[in-house]
Structures are given as structure tokens and as C-alpha cells.
Design a protein around this nucleic acid. Structure first.
Length: 738
DNA sequence: TATCCGGGGTTTTTT
DNA sequence: ACCCCGGATA
């Protein structure tokens, strides 16, 4: 093995070699952050540090896997597989299962995903008869999530006067109570949600110093990737684990902090040097990924943010092409343009589809782009949206498994007790739930003998309920003997899920069947992998724990046909493509309409920064004047971020006509979009000056408030003011027809 | 109990 | 446009 340090530039090398005390590595976009992390770990291993003494926390499972593989190739033995490497959530789940006896949960606790959490919240809201117009499930959940991320348990939450004030102000004074109730139910269900994994680990460390000490001793070196996206709970965990040995290395880029909605606190990285007074700072400023134009454009954009760690990211690659900005009339035309641009750049610059990514702010935008890609026969892959494990049939199947493993898991039980149909309706379920509460036991126990718990149901229904109980129970009996794969196979067959999908002859049904089959195969693969690692018996729990924390991003692609990648700017973090297109750069979309305060805007700007810096050679930015959203046409202004980019890095527009006047009143609420009438006719005077009278065959007479005429394709756009009520009429047509 | 229909509300990002 | 819920009906 040659000296691996030779693969590094001086500043990377310096960062890799320093391992004595806390240090912060500020890694500009494309500066080889992952490289530094992998080489640092390999360096430690090569210098005699034991793999199991290293804890490396990554943002995704995929990142962990890739890093592990790369480290493997840099060290001479197979130590890499003993590294503690994974997401915070995965590490916490592992620790909490091992140390279950300190937590009050069992080793087999379930992990509730967001759907389960929402459903539980809904149940509580209903029971408490709270107005769901005021207590929105999402709002309540995000409040609870916020509390946990900031280490408030229900007691401290309910005692904090600022919190009480806040909840009162948002007209949800009962939030604290719901939080208590929610935690109680989770506990009774032997389940944790995502936030609990972090929260409970911290609590355990606090209350059982001997456990904390064990891990402090275990983790001699701690490395945290994407530190800018950690929340308080994560910050605290890292801090307590690193307390004695102070061998803590955090890597990140404050300019790429984009997850505050999930509790991430950019202050963690900004304050690192204060928190660890002896810390050293390393900066990686040379960008190896992008051309100078792209780096400079991104720099000029991010310089508009006030809060940041000063750095000078630069590129020594060629100057490259300037950024292109293209405005289209509609979202559909934007999509079509993206497709045409894809074909053209592939032909002219000899890229293949794998080299191209289309990024957008919201998943909803993918729809129209997908349509156009299909229309123009461009193969694509799409990240995000509904993940495999979120699909109904998969959720159903895993609910069976979860219930089999953990009888207390109420969300799983309620989900599947009547699917496939067993004629056990909502009323029966409610009765059972109530009986369980009154008898202070679990719903599952009630199922075994409903009449003993005073559930008033017909004998026939009772029989069906007991039948369900027996089915689950009999599968549970097999847990010790049967491996994960065997159990899953058994579940799919005895539950009737397979049969249900098979009898449905629509394409939906066959899809469901195929997905279930794929699930079965993935268990088999999982088992295979474990066998290779020397584990003889693979219990179902292992598999469940694994899939609770994986996302689609973690899936490795198997097709070899080149495809264009479609994804949100968030999911693009950490990736790079020769050609990047950013679609929908419009105000109220990017930045999102939800971003109100300057802090939010800064985060959106960072997100845009992340998007641009994914590009290696070409970056195209598009926006549409009108966009179909939520069932109506929206007029939009170009994103305010576009003017944040220094003009010298943007290709000059040839067409001065592009600079059309858009009346600012466009976006005012009293403009109700009326309709789009493809076949409507209108009479207006050329060249449609603002203020001229217009007669329309459907809407009658009105006044043009804004209009334009684009030479190349003869389009007009009219804003209508009729009878004192401002209505918006949008229409595209040939000039002759008017 | 299951299903169909209509009305109302809601739209971000995801471990 | 889409999803969710509730009510009415089979």
C-alpha cells in the first residue's frame, strides 16, 4: 500500500493528519469533503486505531455505505466493516436495542415512521375532541418534533412559560397535553418515532452515566459529516460522547445548511469553535468539481447571506460556460424545453443521460417534467416522492411483520386488522380500542377474547376478531425458529396480502403483487448479506430495524441504461453532475412561499446555492410565467435569487423582448384566475397596450391590465378587469384568431 | 360493514 | 389537481 496521503492536496492533507483534539473542517462545495473523511479514517486505521473505536456519523445510509467501501479499498485488512458508521438514527437505534434494559422499551421496539406518527396524533385529537381545523395534525406533529429535537420532554415542555405562550398564541394551548399523551401511547406501543431515537439515547446517557461511559470509552474518535445539518439533540449527543477524549472532527459547510425545517441548527457549526475552545479550524476552499463560472456565480449568490463563516471557494478548472437562464410561458413549456435541452446538449457535447440532472424545489414539479420526458422518449429516474417502503402494499406487509414482532404496536394493528377485508369495521376497532384503554391493556390482548373485556360485538364479528388474533399469534410462535425470509413469506401468504394483489387483475393489482415480491426478494438479499458476514440466523427484527431507517436515496441503481436524474434540490446534496438544470426558479416556489423571515430566505438561498454547485460544466436555470398549481393557474415572477447572481456569470439574453413588464398586481389576492379557454376568441386591438378595451366571447368586455406579444410564436396574455371585479384570464392564441 | 359520492381543505424539503 | 373525511346508501 502506497502512502495514501499523496492523493491529497496540502490543505486536505493537513486536515487528515490532524487527529489530536477537536477540529472543524469547513469544506466548500466540491472541495473533497468526503475524500478528507474517508482518508482520515483510513489514516487512523493504518496508524493502528481499532475500527470499533471509530464512530463516523453520516447524513444518509448511502453515504455511510459508500464511505465504508472506499475506506476498505484504502486499508490492507477488512477492518472497515467493524467501523461504527451510519446515520445518527441508525446508530441510536442500535444502541437503544443493545441497552434496552435501561430504557423501559424492549429490544424489539418498533420504529414509527411519519405516517404512523400522524395517525397516532389523529387518534389522540379525536379522543380529546379537539377541533381538527385548529389542531392540524402536521402542525401538532412538527411542534412535538421540535420539542424532542430540542430535548424538551413533556414535563419540561408543559412547564416552560415561553412555550406555553407560543402555543396559546398559535391557538393550540393543548399541544403540551397532546405531546404527553402521544409519548405515553408510543411507550405503551413499545415504539419510538424518529425523533425519539435521538431523544431517548440522550436521556439514557444522562440517566445512566455508566452506559454513556461505556460508549465514551468505545468511541475514541468521533467524526461527524454534514455537521451544518445537525440539531440540538445530535449536538448534545456528540458533545457528551466526545467529552472525555475530545477527539472530535466535524466536517461541513455552513453555506449548505438546508434542513432547519427538520430541526437542524446552523448555529452548531457556526459556534463549534466557541463550544470547543481548543479546536482547530481547517478550510478546504479549492473546488475540484465545477468550472470557474459556476463557482463564481454560486459565490456571488451566497455572498448575499449575512450569517456565514468567511471562505473563498475557488476553482482552477477552465472558465467554462456561463449560466443560462431561460424563461418560458408555462410550466409545460418549461418541461418541454428541459427535454429538448437535454437532447441537444447530449448531442452537441457528447454527454449521456447519466450526466444530467434536473433539480426542482418541490416533488410536485416532477409530474409535468416526467410527462415531457416520456413524450420525448428520454429515459429518466426519479428520486424522492413515494419511496418503496411508503407504498401502501409495502406498508401493509411491514405492518403485519411489525405486529408479529411487537404485539403492542397499535398503529400496525389498526392498519391491517381489516386489510385484506375481514369485515372488522371501524366501529369494532373503536370498541376494541376503548376496551383496551379501560382495562389498561393492549388492543392485541383484547383481540384474544373480546367478550372478556366487555366488548359489545356480535358473535360473528367476535369470531373474526379472534381469528385475526390467532393468525398473528401463530406467526409470532415461529419467530424463534424461522428466519426473516421465512417469516415474511409466511406473512405474505397467510395474511392474504398476496392473494389480494393476485385477484386484482388491474395493473394496480399486478404492481402491488410485484412490489410484494420485490419486498420478499429484498429480505432474501438482506439475509444473504448477513450470512456472508458470518451471522447464521437472521431474525425478522433485524430486517425491520433496517428498513425503518432506509430511504429510496439509499437504493443502488441496477439498470445500466443511461437516465436523466430528476430530484429535489434537497436530495441532490452531496451529488454532482456535468449538466444541471434547475427548474421553477420563481418567487413563491423557490424561494418557497413558506419562507417569510429573512432566516428562511437565507436557507432557501443556500438551497439554491447547493443546486448550482452540483453542476460541473453546465448550469441552466429556467422559470415559467405561469404554473399550474393546486388546480389553478398561477402567475409568477422570476425568483428574487436570480438577481443575486452576478450578471457577469450569466449568459446575456439576446431577446430584449424577454424583459416584459409584469404588473406587480398580478400576484395580489383579488385576482382570481378564472379559466383557461383554449377555444375562446377575443377581440383586442393590436398591439394590446395596457389599458385597452377587450371583448371576449365568453367573458365579455374588460380591460387589459397586462399583455405581451412574443414575436416568435405569436402569443398573447391578457389580464382582465370586468365589472369592477378583477378577474384574471389567461389565454394563448395565434394573432389571427383575435 | 362496505362503498360511493361530494365537499372542503391543502399544498416544502425528509432521517 | 389531489387527498381526506363524512354522510348517505346498498
Amino acid at each position: 500500500m502506497d502512502n495514501i496521503l499523496e492523493h491529497l492536496n496540502p490543505s486536505q492533507r493537513e486536515a487528515v493528519e490532524y487527529n489530536n483534539g477537536p477540529h472543524l473542517v469547513i469544506a466548500g462545495a466540491g472541495s473533497g469533503k468526503t475524500r478528507v473523511l474517508t482518508y482520515k479514517i483510513a489514516y487512523l486505521l493504518n496508524n493502528g486505531v481499532k475500527a470499533y473505536n471509530i464512530l463516523a456519523l453520516t447524513f444518509t445510509n448511502k453515504a455511510a455505505r459508500e464511505m465504508r467501501n472506499r475506506i476498505q479499498s484504502l486499508v490492507s485488512n477488512d477492518d472497515a466493516k467493524y467501523l461504527w458508521m451510519g446515520t445518527f438514527h441508525a446508530m441510536c437505534a442500535r444502541i437503544l436495542r443493545t441497552e434496552a434494559k435501561y430504557t423501559g422499551f424492549t429490544h424489539d421496539f418498533s420504529i414509527y415512521d411519519t405516517t404512523d406518527s400522524k395517525s397516532l396524533i389523529k387518534t389522540i385529537l379525536k379522543e380529546q375532541q379537539l377541533d381538527d381545523k385548529i389542531y392540524k395534525t402536521n402542525a401538532v406533529l412538527s411542534r412535538i418534533s421540535w420539542a424532542k429535537n430540542n430535548m424538551y420532554d413533556p414535563t419540561s415542555y408543559n412547564r416552560d412559560s415561553n412555550i406555553i405562550k407560543y402555543d396559546k398564541f398559535s391557538r393550540m394551548p393543548m399541544t403540551g397535553f397532546i405531546y404527553s399523551e402521544y409519548q405515553k401511547r408510543l411507550y405503551e406501543a413499545n415504539a419510538m418515532d424518529f425523533d425519539d431515537l435521538l431523544f431517548n439515547t440522550n436521556i439514557m446517557f444522562r440517566e445512566h452515566p455508566e452506559v454513556l461511559q461505556k460508549y465514551q470509552q468505545g468511541f475514541q474518535y468521533i467524526l461527524v459529516d454534514e455537521y451544518q445539518d445537525t440539531n440540538y439533540a445530535q449536538y448534545m449527543m456528540v458533545r457528551s460522547l466526545a467529552e472525555p477524549q475530545q477527539n472530535i472532527c466535524v466536517v461541513g459547510d455552513d453555506a449548505q445548511s438546508i434542513y432547519s425545517f427538520r430541526g437542524a441548527n446552523i448555529q452548531n457549526i457556526l459556534n463549534f469553535q466557541k463550544d470547543y475552545s481548543t479546536s482547530r479550524l481547517f478550510k478546504l476552499e479549492r473546488n475540484y468539481r465545477s468550472t470557474q463560472n459556476i463557482v463564481n456565480a454560486a459565490n456571488s449568490l451566497i455572498s448575499k447571506n449575512i450569517h456565514q463563516i468567511p471562505k473563498h471557494v475557488y476553482s482552477e478548472k477552465s472558465e467554462g460556460s456561463k449560466l443560462q437562464i431561460k424563461t418560458l410561458d408555462t410550466d409545460r413549456e418549461e418541461a418541454s424545453f428541459l427535454a429538448r435541452y437535454t437532447i441537444e446538449i447530449c448531442r452537441k457535447q457528447h454527454y449521456d443521460y447519466n450526466d444530467i440532472a434536473i433539480l426542482y424545489r418541490t416533488n410536485a414539479q416532477s409530474r409535468v417534467i416526467e410527462d415531457e420526458m416520456r413524450k420525448q422518449a428520454i429515459p429518466y429516474r426519479i428520486y424522492g416522492g413515494l419511496s418503496f417502503y411508503q407504498r401502501k402494499e409495502i406498508k401493509d406487509a411491514t405492518a403485519y411483520m411489525n405486529l408479529v414482532v411487537n404485539h403492542n404496536n397499535e398503529e400496525a394493528l389498526v392498519r391491517i386488522i381489516n386489510f385484506p377485508k375481514r369485515s372488522i369495521g371501524d366501529t369494532t376497532v373503536d370498541k376494541i380500542r376503548l376496551a383496551a384503554r379501560e382495562n389498561n391493556t393492549t388492543m392485541f390482548n383484547v383481540l384474544s377474547a373480546p367478550q372478556d373485556y366487555g366488548v359489545q360485538i356480535s358473535p360473528a364479528t367476535g369470531k373474526r376478531v379472534v381469528g385475526f388474533y390467532n393468525m398473528i399469534d401463530s406467526i409470532s410462535q415461529q419467530l424463534e425458529q424461522m428466519s426473516a425470509y421465512q417469516i415474511v413469506d409466511l406473512v405474505l401468504k397467510t395474511s392474504g396480502l398476496m392473494a389480494e394483489a393476485l385477484t386484482d387483475k388491474t395493473s394496480d393489482g399486478t404492481d402491488r403483487y410485484e412490489n410484494l415480491d420485490e419486498l420478499r426478494n429484498s429480505v432474501r438479499e438482506f439475509e444473504e448479506l448477513r450470512h456472508q458476514d458470518g451471522q447464521d440466523f437472521v431474525p425478522l427484527t433485524d430486517f425491520l430495524s433496517e428498513i425503518a431507517l432506509v430511504t429510496d436515496q439509499d437504493k443502488t441503481e441496477q439498470t445500466n441504461e443511461p437516465r436523466v436524474t430528476l430530484m429535489t434540490a434537497h436530495s441532490a446534496k452531496g451529488l454532482e453532475y456535468p449538466v444541471v438544470m434547475i427548474a421553477g426558479m420563481e418567487d413563491n416556489l423557490f424561494p418557497s412561499a413558506f419562507a417569510e423571515e429573512e432566516n428562511d430566505i437565507e436557507e432557501e438561498r443556500r438551497l439554491f446555492y447547493v443546486a448550482i454547485t452540483r453542476a460541473m460544466d453546465y448550469c441552466l436555470i429556467t422559470n415559467a410565467r405561469t404554473r399550474f398549481r393546486n388546480g389553478q393557474i398561477n402567475f409568477s415572477m422570476p425568483s428574487r435569487f436570480i438577481k443575486d447572481i452576478d450578471e457577469q456569470y450569466i449568459e446575456k439574453k439576446k431577446d430584449v423582448q424577454e424583459q416584459r413588464q409584469f404588473v406587480s398586481s398580478f400576484i395580489q389576492p383579488n385576482f382570481q384566475p378564472l379559466n383557461t379557454i383554449e377555444s375562446a376568441r377575443c377581440e383586442i386591438e393590436s398591439p394590446y397596450p395596457v389599458g385597452s378595451r377587450v371583448r371576449h366571447n365568453v367573458f365579455g368586455e374588460g380591460e387589459v391590465i397586462a399583455a405581451y406579444n412574443e414575436n416568435d410564436n405569436d402569443k398573447i396574455e391578457i389580464l382582465f378587469d370586468k365589472a369592477g371585479r378583477k378577474t384574471l384570464l389567461m389565454r394563448f392564441a395565434k394573432l389571427e384568431s383575435c
